[in-house]
Design a protein around this nucleic acid. Structure first.
Lengths: 205, 205
DNA sequence: GATCAATTAGACAAGTCTGTCTTGTTTATA
DNA sequence: TATAAACAAGACAGACTTGTCTAATTGATC
């Protein structure tokens, strides 16, 4: 896996979205939008600000995306894909049984939390801001959660555990809790709090 | 304790903020703003929309609050106070040792999650939307978290546990995780997932 | 070299946003 | 009853919003 996370949060220069200097205008826009949405919120980031950061023309943005809403959805999808690639990539490198991999989740999370530009999970933040007001956002968030849930269930089956679904739900609570607690307190070590809780849970199964 | 929660989320009519039919214009504005901020987001709720819902005049709003930012801060403070009164009030009624009270947290949470108008935690949502962009919001969120932390530590000392601070952190992760998971999946039963995890944690101490 | 898509630059429309101000009315209280 | 605070109604300013449109320019491909 790459040594540095490739999330939008990790690079204040903003060239972080996919994989370094974006050449075409579309990527430049996505990169700038990712950075601004994640750091200042979706509604708070205006089209003109995004364009000014991207250094592109307005007509170009509306050539690639039919509306701001579509841009938001595209950014969330791309951001999610980048994140999952990084996250699951790290976990795939973990040696040992599925149980070890499940616990390693929280070490990878801590690395994420430790990034100076960590802003929380874009999907949690997006649902917090829009919730019922934007179907595309909800769909993107649901998809992201589904990916995570699938991975967790696969690990749980491999351990194996009796109630795979419940184990996945348990880890979902721990992951979300660690993210939010770390974001609010600006303290990456909440990942370790969640990890030792996860260890206790697995031992008690 | 009152039989019905008094949170802004619980009453679509919007007369829920503090304690039923608000008489003065200030309360009407707070009530309308609470409802709209919580259900549609802070940036998405315009002053005119709030005024139209509150049935008050614009000059009245700016007579009581010097800006929208101040209104947001006031709403968060009031919303937090109402929530804590309801939450800790419920828990104070729980009979038995501190350990039982700690676990009852998740039953009270489930009741909250089960409200049809449950929109997640206003503070989590506010930090997600503003984060670094609004000091008053962060202060209100920090204060809310501090209240919860104090309560958790008091219970942990009463149990008693060895590391009071770590137990409080553990419960903070569980509570935040349950809130976010329940909000995203629209499934109140995540409270019980967190509860059984908490039980395992306390038993393993 | 010609053609077509991508892009730039910016004016512009039409609406929304917060916040101010004026004028007059209600309400509570001393 | 007199006085002051609270409130209503709404015009208005000025800035900002998303999105459209025109016109000129670049770049790649046939």
């Amino acid at each position: 896996m790459k040594d540095a996370p490739t999330l939008c949060s990790t690079d204040p220069t903003g060239w972080s979205f996919a994989s370094r200097p974006p050449k075409n205008a579309r990527d430049k826009i996505m990169s700038a939008a990712s950075f601004l949405f994640c750091n200042h919120g979706f509604a708070a980031s205006g089209i003109d600000t995004i364009l000014s950061r991207a250094g592109t023309a307005k007509a170009t943005l509306y050539h690639h995306f039919k509306s701001k809403e579509e841009l938001i959805a595209a950014v969330l999808e791309a951001e999610g894909e980048t994140w999952r690639e990084w996250f699951f990539g790290h976990l795939a490198e973990v040696e040992g049984p599925a149980r070890t991999r499940m616990l390693a989740v929280f070490d990878v999370l801590e690395e994420w939390f430790s990034d100076p530009g960590f802003y929380g999970c874009p999907f949690i933040n997006a649902v917090a801001e829009f919730d019922s007001g934007n179907d595309a956002v909800r769909r993107a968030a649901d998809l992201h959660k589904a990916y995570l849930n699938t991975w967790l269930k696969a690990q749980a089956m491999e351990i194996p555990v009796k109630d795979v679904e419940e184990t996945a739900r348990t880890f979902a609570v721990l992951i979300d809790g660690a993210i939010v607690a770390a974001q609010h307190a600006r303290d990456p070590s909440f990942a370790q709090t969640a990890k030792s809780l996860a260890k206790t849970y697995l031992e008690a199964l």
